[in-house]
């Protein structure tokens, strides 16, 4: 008698835990042949709000970690992903990719994590400045993370796109809530398991599954979210996001023109998008000049 396969329950990822949606709702994305992929959590507004609380709580310690340490953790994510390559390739194939496409996507995703792991302790040197002010002051500007970022991940490239939007955000010290691809959510949940075993503190990345049409409004209007990233070319959503974002002057980024498989999809300017520039002044005492310049 053949062995009965154990099916996986796809749950969401909030604050380092894997709960089901509080709403008890689910949806059933289909594969190319029209067969159900799995029963997936249809996350609610309340799930999102709980994820924001988790992300905000995680922000202080994540943003104050040494940049070098964040680099090591991103590298660790890549290591874990490498070790579970086969599972991701299987899931991508289930979701309709060819074996070759799936393999390329997983490899590129791993390499992209390595790429951003390296930037963690370097982009500050690229984007920070020492400013030669005319008065007797020492003045410098450094990038600091914007805060909590809500992300609607790309619908296609369900693994590579997801990794490509999360990596620069957390490399820069932000925390985030990500809505996975609606039709291809399997890899996102499995990626949450990778994160959970990669020394990424709970709450730094929170992953929900569900429908953008239902949730985009809340991703855009939450008052404790500082920035929003949206990856589709949907004019209605763009307008809605920009209008709601104005409630608390959120930073809005649309990555709808990015080809996630291309080399253009990785550069430090993606990190800079969710950074704020802080400028610090301090007087320089002019010894002997008797002009302290306070």
């Amino acid at each position: 008698m053949s062995r009965l396969e154990v099916l996986k329950t796809y749950k969401i990822y909030i604050g380092g835990q894997f709960p089901r949606t509080e709403s008890g709702r689910y949806y059933t994305p289909l594969n190319k042949a029209g067969n159900p992929l799995a029963n997936v959590c249809l996350s609610s507004r309340k799930d999102f709000r709980e994820a924001v609380v988790a992300a905000r709580n995680a922000f202080g310690s994540w943003s104050s970690r040494a940049a070098f340490n964040r680099g090591q953790i991103l590298y660790r994510i890549a290591e874990m992903l490498e070790g579970r390559k086969a599972q991701f390739i299987d899931e991508l194939i289930l979701q309709g990719a060819t074996n070759a496409q799936a393999t390329t996507e997983v490899h590129t995703a791993i390499d992209r994590l390595i790429y951003y792991a390296g930037w963690c302790d370097k982009f500050q040197q690229l984007f920070g400045t020492i400013n030669p002010v005319a008065s007797s002051h020492f003045n410098f500007s450094v990038p600091e993370p914007t805060g909590v970022v809500s992300i609607i991940a790309p619908q296609s490239n369900s693994l590579l796109g997801l990794v490509s939007v999360i990596a620069p955000v957390i490399a820069g010290g932000n925390t985030c809530i990500v809505l996975a691809s609606e039709t291809k959510p399997l890899c996102a949940v499995t990626f949450a398991e990778v994160l959970n075993s990669s020394d990424v503190p709970g709450g730094v990345v929170n992953i929900l599954t569900g429908k953008p049409n239902e949730l985009v409004k809340y991703f855009a209007d939450h008052m404790d979210v500082n920035a929003i990233i949206y990856c589709e070319n949907d004019a209605t959503h763009h307008k809605l996001i920009q209008e709601k974002a104005a409630l608390n002057v959120k930073r809005v980024y649309f990555y709808d023109k990015v080809n996630w498989q291309s080399a253009d999809a990785e550069n430090p300017y993606f990190i800079l998008d969710t950074q704020e520039i802080k400028t610090t002044w301090h007087p320089i005492e002019n010894i002997g000049g008797a002009k302290a310049g306070y």
Binding site: T129, N131, P132, V133, A134, S135, H137, N139, S141, E276, I277, K278, T279, T280, W281, H282, P283, G293, Y294
Partner: peptide, 16 residues
């Protein structure tokens, strides 16, 4: 965005 330590309200074209 701007933090003044032991000074305040200083501005300069080179300073973001």
């Amino acid at each position: 965005g701007v933090v003044w330590a032991n000074t305040y309200n200083k501005f300069d074209p080179t300073s973001p």
